[in-house]
Each structure stands twice: as structure tokens, then as C-alpha cells.
Design a protein around this nucleic acid. Structure first.
Lengths: 352, 352
DNA sequence: ATTAGCACTCATTACAGGAGAGTGCTAACA
DNA sequence: TGTTAGCACTCTCCTGTAATGAGTGCTAAT
């Protein structure tokens, strides 16, 4: 670890104390408070001098002359990188997480949804989970099911147990047998394929080999494409959005509403997570480090999940910059651990 | 229409004027305002006398001595039943509705989702749409698809183009051929059936006829049951929840948060709609008429949708009691009309 | 290097007074 | 009898002022 020359041990202790206090009470914290709390045998005046230094260095600010200090974004950054303490979760919390995630582990998206609920539950902030985006969608099975003569059901099963289906309506009066043959053919052609190439070749093959009307083939291929696109799409699960309203920094209704509106957009959430710095698997975006103006007073903590080192997706927490970083990080780490184990159970060695 | 003896024409006019004004400005309205606005050649003192009567009758109240009047829930009820004017929608609004709902009409749930968005968009309040709850689920097709020797995909297609699928994991190492036979058998047994009876008989039949291990049969039947339950479950689509934050009556953050939390619960929304009075297809729950305490300051307008008189589901609007009832009702009526037409297109004569 | 002491700053609170909106009542009027 | 002008009264809201108090920065003493 690089020793930050500009902050000696005492300044660090004081900075940590200020931030801890501010996280807890959301009130500017003054020199007396710190002096009393730290029990270093230092008077408030000394602390005041140190605080003046910390302010000059940009770690804390004063909302107005002669108020206490509040941490700046730079202060928070230093805090998460050098100062914060991780507390291990309470036994009941671990229990809760385990319990919630191990029941009914059938579908991967169910699990992910649960994760988002449990995170917001444990942390009290807003949580988000992005479903796996498969680097390469491999089709395991593709099937057409005859419903009636103008309607088919297309089912695509991809790796990772992901299933998408789609009703296909057509005008070609296909009979049950034709559909069956078509289904087998498509399955043979596409299964195991990584990137689906809807080449003219395939197109013609189908028509020639199976004597299926052009119209139907076109619609079916489009449907397949559509399903694959859906499989490839990242799903966003949010929970605890209204928790934002709990924090005094968002008592401004308009501001709060703006944020809530914004978080509804899946794109926004997906973009929150972009450009994770390499090296660490935990990413912090603190206040002004966020790109969107509306989010400059929020912090986002993100991590990646996935069994044995494979990056499947991301999840994290959104809260005020004055977030209980220590608590959140410990929770995230623990939940990630459990999630990864569960995923391994569901997916097995199914390479994604 | 029953002529309410207790309110003569003039009182009605005044009441309507008060409510219209209050809906617009959310401010207690005084006698002078009304006198000026109505242009009946009446002085404010006369209006004052009438207002005193209206207050005594319970249609309006005073927030405090010598403030203007605000409508009571009873006032609003009289308003929606006798006074409010329906304005026909602006041409652009009708365009917008048509456009939004006629593109991409493949899946019924897609359509419903769009409806909820368009309602909140047009009205500026919170909208909800409940998906059809089928009185009787008829299975059109049931199919098992072989994925690998420990995994099947169950697909159930019900009437109304509703599809549910479920990955079924088992330990019985079924081969592709067995699955295929099983699939055909199940399809024969179940398709067309209204209520699926998972009788012992069926259970034994399958085992005897197809020599499939007991374990697998049990799991598969459970999965079928599960799919049918899912088909039968009402989906709730909400949109524009944060619109609630726009109204001054919910500037109290705690109250607002409470409501937002509440609306997240699907059950709550489903219960909003219970007990629609027979006769009309438009149902109003105004303020205190709602059962839940947290919703006593909200009004809920609900209607049913469904092609040719068949009640498929409900949708509606949630807003402050001071809702623009006229505007909302006209919007709801128009949207219902369009929705019903679209549903007819999608469902055809498929009897639900 | 530390700190006690002190003057100073600024948000917050409380309080008082005035303006304004609106009422209820009464007496006069058509 | 219904309507209305006039007036006293009520209550909120706004404004200004003063007091409070938390906290600072600086200086001089330790």
C-alpha cells in the first residue's frame, strides 16, 4: 500500500472520526465532538487546527463559515480506500441471506431477483443486480411447437438454463408434421452454435429441404433472432428505490423524484456500472465521480459476481454519498460469496 | 337519474365551481373567487350563504375558521356522479394512444404493459393494469422438450396465447425418446382440459404405460401444476408511481414513501379493485372509501376491459382525491375502447 | 506543539406585528 | 323573501428582529 505522505496518522484518525460521525448523524461535525470522541488527550483547539489543514487539503468542507465540517467526495474516497472498517455481519443477517437465497433455486432470474431484495433489505439502501450478459450465447436446444395451423411456439434454450419463447403467428397453414420436421431441422442446424448466422444459405436450405413457404421461414427466423436478442439482453433488478426518501439529503421532493425517475431507466443503471477499474473487483463511484448530474450526490458501489472467477454480471448498492460504506461493503462481499455458490449449484459446470 | 332533492341547481353550480377550482389549484377556494368566476350576477355574500349550506350538508369543509372551502369526499362523490364534465381528448392524445398500442402487438402482456405506461402518461397520475385472470385455464398444448439427460423443458400453452415454461431437473436419466413419448402422452391427456386434475389415476397411467420412473413423473406433474398456477396468477403492471410526488398533498415525505412502498405490493393493488359495484363498468373509490388507511387521501378509478362484454381484467388510475376526474374518466374510456379492439385482434375469437 | 480564551460568524428558533384572504352576521334593500 | 353591502372577526402567512448556540479562527500563554 502506498503511504499517503500528506496525511499523517493523527490526521487520518481525525478524518475517519469525522466521516464516521457524519455517516451516522448527517450533521456537520465540530471539533469538540471529535475531541471528546477520540480520547487522545487533545483539546478541541488542536483538532481545529488539524481540521483546518484537512480542509485545505480538500478532504472536508464547511457548509458555511463557522459550521462544523462535512466530508468532501475526496474525503470519502480516502475513507473507502484507507480508513473504513469492515464489520462482519451479525449472525442473524448471515442466516437471513442464506435462507433467502437457498430456497427454490430453480431459475437463475429468480435467484437474482432475490439477491436484489436481500441486499436492499440488509443495507437499507437501493440495490441493483444486472443479470448475466453472456459473452456468447450458445443455443442448446431450439424447438418449434405446433399450437394450431396458424400459430407456433418457438422455444430457445440457451446455455445457463436460460429459456425464451415466443408465439409465432403465420399465414402458411403448416400442419403438425411439417412443424415437427422444421423443428428438428432447425435444432440440428442451430444447436451448439455460438453466433447464429442467419445466412442466406440457411434460409434457402430450409426452403429447399423442407418445402416450407418462404413467409413462414422468414417469420420463424426473425423470431429466433428475437429470442437470442432477448437472451443477450441484460435484465435489471432494482429494489428498495424508495429507501432514498429516507435520507435527509433528499428531502427535496423534486430532487428525489428526479432520481427515482432516472433509476427506472434500465439504461441508466447499466451505465452506472461501466468502466470498472481493473484490479479490484469492488468499484466505488463517489458523488461527483458519477457521470450523471442527478447522481452527483449519490454513491454507487458495484461488484461482479460469477463462479470461479468468471465475470457473469454485476450488482451493487446505490445510496447517498454519506453511505455506511463499511457495512455495505461487508454485506456485498458476503452476499457475493453466497450468490456465487448458489450459481455454481444452478449452473453446474455449464460453461458460460 | 334520481334528482337529489337536497341540492338545487344553484348549489350544484357552486359546488362544481368550487371543486373544479380546487382540483386545479389545490388551494381552499373562497366566496369571492366563485362569485367572480360564475358570473351569475350574485355577490360574494350570497355565495357565502350557499357555501355555509353546502358545508352543513357535508359537501365541503373548512380547513380552519375563515379559510376558503375544500371539497369533502362526499363532495367529490357527488361531483363524479352528477357534476363533472367529460372533455373529449385532444387529437394528439388520441393519436398517441393509438400509436403506442398498435405497434408490435404480439404478446398480450406486452400490450398491457404499454397500456399502463400510456395511461400514466396521458393522465399524469399513477396507473395500474391487472392482467386477465382466466376464469378457466384451458390447456391448448403441453410439451416436454429434451435438453439433456437430467433436464427437461416443460412448455404449457394455454388459451389466450399465454405461454409458461419451466426448466425441470430430475435424476432419472431420461433419454430423448422417452421424453418424446412422455410429451405426447401428457399432451393427449391434458390438452383441452379445463381443470387439470392430477389424480392418482393419471399418475399411475403414466408410470404403467410409459415406464417412466416415479420420481420424474412426480416432478413433472408438479411443474405442470406450477405452470398452471402461474398462468392463473394476476400480473400487476404499475406505471407513474412517482407522479404521486408531484402533488402538494404528498409533500410529506414519510406519507409519500409509505404509499410508494404500499403500491409495490401486488396484493394491495389487486385488493384496490375488489368489489366493483354492479351496473356501471366504472368504479370510483374516493378517499375514505378506500379500505387501507394509507390510501384515505387517494382516489382510485377502475374499469374493466375485455372484448365483447367479457370481463378480462381491470385497469385504472390512482391519484390524489383532488384528481382531474373528468379528464381521467374520458382518458380511461377512450383507452379502454382502443385496448378492447387490440385485444380482439390478438385473441381473435379465442374464448377466454 | 498544545491549548485556553475570546471575538466573531452564521443558522436556527422564537416572537411580534402587519397584511391579506376569507368568514359570519346584521341590517338594509328590491 | 332572497340578495347584498358592510363590518368585525379569525386565522394563516410573511417579515423583521432579537436571542440562542454551535462552531470557528486567531492570539497569547504554557
Amino acid at each position: 500500500m502506498v503511504w499517503e505522505k500528506e496525511l499523517n496518522e493523527r490526521k487520518r484518525t481525525i478524518l475517519k472520526s469525522i466521516i464516521d460521525d457524519y455517516i451516522k448523524y448527517a450533521q456537520p461535525v465540530g471539533s469538540r465532538t471529535i475531541a471528546r470522541k477520540l480520547e487522545l488527550g487533545l483539546g478541541s483547539a488542536t483538532i481545529r487546527n488539524e481540521m483546518a489543514d484537512l480542509e485545505e487539503l480538500g478532504y472536508i468542507t464547511q457548509p458555511y463559515t463557522s459550521a462544523g465540517r462535512i466530508p468532501s467526495d475526496k474525503g470519502y474516497r480516502f475513507y473507502v480506500e484507507h480508513l473504513m472498517q469492515l464489520h462482519s455481519l451479525a449472525y442473524e443477517e448471515m442466516e437471513k441471506i442464506q435462507a433467502a437465497m437457498s430456497e427454490q433455486i430453480e431459475e437463475i432470474n429468480e435467484l437474482i431477483k432475490k439477491v436484489s431484495i436481500i441486499i436492499s433489505n440488509i443495507t437499507g439502501y437501493t440495490s441493483f443486480v444486472l443479470s448475466p450478459q453472456l459473452k456468447k450465447v450458445t443455443i442448446k436446444t431450439i424447438r418449434l411447437i405446433y399450437v394450431d395451423e396458424k400459430m407456433l411456439l418457438l422455444v430457445v434454450v440457451a446455455n445457463g438454463g436460460i429459456v425464451k419463447d415466443k408465439i409465432v403467428k403465420h399465414q402458411s397453414n403448416l400442419d403438425e408434421d411439417t412443424v415437427h420436421r422444421l423443428s428438428n431441422f432447425l435444432n440440428k442446424v442451430f444447436s451448439g452454435k455460438t453466433v447464429v448466422e442467419l445466412s442466406e444459405q440457411n434460409f434457402l436450405d430450409i426452403q429447399l429441404n423442407l418445402k416450407v413457404p418462404k413467409e413462414a421461414v422468414k417469420i420463424i427466423l426473425e423470431a429466433i433472432e428475437d429470442c437470442i436478442r432477448k437472451i443477450d439482453t441484460i435484465d435489471v433488478y432494482l429494489d428498495g428505490v424508495t429507501n432514498i426518501l429516507n435520507f435527509p439529503e433528499f428531502s427535496d421532493l423534486l430532487k428525489a423524484r428526479e432520481i427515482l425517475e432516472l433509476l427506472k431507466e434500465e439504461e441508466v443503471v447499466i451505465n452506472l456500472v461501466k468502466n470498472p477499474p481493473p484490479g479490484s473487483n469492488l468499484d466505488y463511484k463517489i458523488g461527483s465521480e458519477n457521470e450523471l448530474n442527478e447522481l452527483k450526490e449519490l454513491s454507487v458501489i458495484t461488484t461482479v459476481y460469477g463462479s470461479d472467477g468468471k465475470n457473469l454480471g454485476t450488482f451493487g448498492v446505490i445510496g447517498p454519498t454519506r453511505m455506511a460504506y463499511g457495512k455495505v461493503v461487508s454485506s456485498i462481499k458476503y452476499i457475493r460469496e453466497v450468490l456465487n455458490k448458489e450459481l455454481l449449484k444452478i449452473l453446474g459446470d455449464d460453461s458460460l
